[in-house]
């Protein structure tokens, strides 16, 4: 039954465009070392070649350290998308697991999870991550994935819990249970496939939330450490030269916005496709 939703998604022009953009970003990230014209950390001449405007030689210009911005944006995709994907997977998995646990076990487990969600959802995520970064000191990308992912599971948990509780009442589950299927079998074979589209929506939304978070973290100086390029820290260099070096802002922002926008569009279309399926044509 979910297959229908996927097919409907691929019939949608907006969804195809979004998938195209995301796919391009993933390809750029995967093949950055081969398609980037320069080493993203190479500083040919940090005095004479700093902040050079876009040209044939440097299509996206150079940054304050004379590094090639195009190469940095391409390599930045690796870090930014890598962190975003990792954090997204972590938060969705964590959210799904905790949401499922709360719904299936119920009782005090449900109380604890729901309470936790209620509390954490009130906290601004940026400040939570800043507090954690300050607590654990400087961050490797892996730590960043853990912190951002660990703070982003709330909505997923909420959705999964609600969906599970809903499905647990449905006839097919009751029937399966009556036939003697184990709890885990029901979860694995019936409930998870049923919420898969919702999980996909949650994943797309999580991706859309994480990329700007990484940028904001860089903006306060606590993001990915140099010389590793990320869209956030390229943008940080750009904010110093907002009026004098537009290329340092425009290209990383375009990368961030296109990716986030595509993830959002995808989430939207997915939701419509699911709704269409539930409501019938």
């Amino acid at each position: 039954m979910a297959a229908n939703a996927w097919r409907q998604l691929l019939d949608d022009r907006g969804a195809r465009a979004a998938i195209g953009v995301l796919g391009a970003a993933v390809l750029a990230a995967a093949f950055a070392p081969w398609i980037a014209p320069y080493d993203p950390t190479l500083q040919p001449d940090p005095v004479a070649l700093r902040l050079v405007a876009p040209s044939w030689q440097h299509p996206f210009g150079t940054d304050p350290f004379s590094r090639d911005v195009l190469s940095r944006v391409l390599h930045g995709a690796r870090v930014s998308l890598g962190v975003a994907t990792g954090a997204m997977l972590l938060s969705v998995t964590l959210g799904a697991a905790l949401g499922a646990l709360a719904a299936v076990v119920g009782g005090w487990v449900d109380g604890v999870v729901s309470g936790l969600v209620d509390v954490l959802i009130a906290m601004p995520r940026l400040l939570i991550v800043i507090a954690l970064v300050a607590t654990f000191g400087t961050l490797s990308p892996w730590w960043l994935i853990a912190l951002i992912g660990g703070s982003g599971w709330l909505t997923t948990a909420r959705i999964v819990r609600a969906e599970f509780r809903d499905h647990l009442q449905r006839e097919y589950v009751l029937a399966a249970r009556a036939l003697g299927a184990s709890r885990w079998r029901i979860i694995w074979h019936h409930l998870l496939p049923a919420v898969a589209p919702q999980l996909a929506v949650a994943a797309a939304l999580a991706l859309a939330a994480v990329i700007p978070l990484e940028a904001a973290l860089s903006f306060v100086g606590l993001g990915i450490q140099p010389p590793l390029p990320s869209w956030g820290n390229i943008l940080l260099d750009g904010t110093d030269y907002l009026t004098s070096a537009w290329w340092l802002v425009v290209f990383p922002v375009a990368a961030v916005s296109l990716t986030v926008g595509s993830a959002l569009v995808l989430a939207d279309r997915l939701r419509v496709a699911i709704a269409g399926e539930e409501h019938g044509p």
Binding site: T41, L42, Q43, P46, P64, F65, V133, A134, G137, T138, G221, L222, Q225, P226, P227
Partner: peptide, 28 residues
């Protein structure tokens, strides 16, 4: 200071010295 660190890192690299940068908030 962050900018100086980025430049130092590249210059050390040129002579075969591996320097990593750790940015932390001022209190830490």
């Amino acid at each position: 200071r962050q900018a100086a660190a980025v430049l130092l890192q590249a210059q050390f690299k040129a002579v075969g010295v591996a320097m990593t940068i750790e940015q932390t908030d001022f209190n830490a």
